[in-house]
Design a protein around this nucleic acid. Structure first.
Lengths: 176, 176
DNA sequence: TATTGTTATACTCTATAACTATA
DNA sequence: TATAGTTATAGAGTATAACAATA
């Protein structure tokens, strides 16, 4: 329980760019990191009126066409209600199709339409560039390792890395 | 434009724990990472009916008592409306006080009450343990570097790491 | 006029719950 | 009974806008 070297680092840090001090802890950094990533993605996606999750659906459907909605949702890390809504939006815009799975008529197999595939291909370079730009803040040799670290953390805590885990309980008593 | 070594890594990856494949790109990982962190923090904060941002206010007010609301907001990475709401909640619970700054009567200097400081001290060990637990997925020697990397990225993209940057434009035309 | 803070409103994300159809 | 998907509702997070007080 003695203080170890990796505990001695200060929690507070002053950002280089004259920003305000921030707490050097995962929860705070994770939030800021997502802000950065979301803002960068938005530069590409906003003009198309898509959110990052819409693009995620296009990417997954492109790579694994024919997934059902639950499988797609679990890859993205959202629940089946949310994927349904996301798909409504994309389907209305003619970017994806839902085909009834004939071997299990409850399931819908998702794939991109021609327009969906075209849009995905059109946005991909800019998305890729944006994601790379985020990492340029790191020394070149560290960038891949950083992604590996994120994968490690998310994988190790898979039970937490899923929708709802951080949900606060309902305060108001349920109806009965 | 030739493929470089650090581009050759596959975007897709299969999580160790039999989870679904996920995209190995910052935007997707950032979201999952925040899910993990938020879920871990929630274990400690939920019983107190606090969110992670409430705790962030307690932590900052503890370390830098007397900040005004705008300064506090910028440290946390939210805007002045949100900090106002957060403080309403904490003030109603008797955890913080807003004192009028006599040298600038527009400003409110925020500090913890005795109860606020006590709550912060009580929660701190569990929060600290949770944050450390998240990082145990990484080799011990990499943990501090990982945090440094996050700080680097957030600092470098400070212009993006702030509220609103990822906001989608209003679709519906404004009233006039 | 500019800034601090407040209040009202609203949008995104993403949950919980209840429901339908199918297995 | 269990699962895939839908729909309705809700709540957390966090924005925009308009305002009041003060500088």
């Amino acid at each position: 329980m003695a203080r170890q070297s990796d505990r001695d680092r200060p929690v507070r840090v002053v950002t280089a760019a004259g920003g305000a001090p921030m707490r050097r802890v995962p929860i705070a950094l994770a939030r800021r990191f997502l802000q950065v990533c979301a803002a960068v993605a938005a530069e590409t996606l906003q003009p198309e009126d898509l959110g990052p999750l819409h693009f995620a659906v296009l990417a997954h459907a492109s790579e694994e066409p024919g997934l059902d909605q639950v499988a797609l949702a679990s890859r993205i890390g959202i629940d089946r209600n949310s994927i349904s809504l996301l798909l409504d939006h994309l389907e209305r815009r003619g970017l994806v199709v839902r085909d009834v799975d004939e071997t299990d008529r409850r399931a819908r197999r998702i794939s991109l339409t021609r327009a969906g595939a075209a849009l995905h291909e059109r946005l991909r370079p800019a998305m890729r560039a944006g994601q790379r730009a985020i990492l340029t803040a790191l020394p070149a040799a560290e960038r891949e390792k950083f992604l590996d670290h994120l994968v490690l953390i998310v994988s190790a805590h898979a039970a937490y890395a899923k929708p709802g885990a951080a949900r606060r309980k309902r305060r108001t008593a349920r109806k009965e």
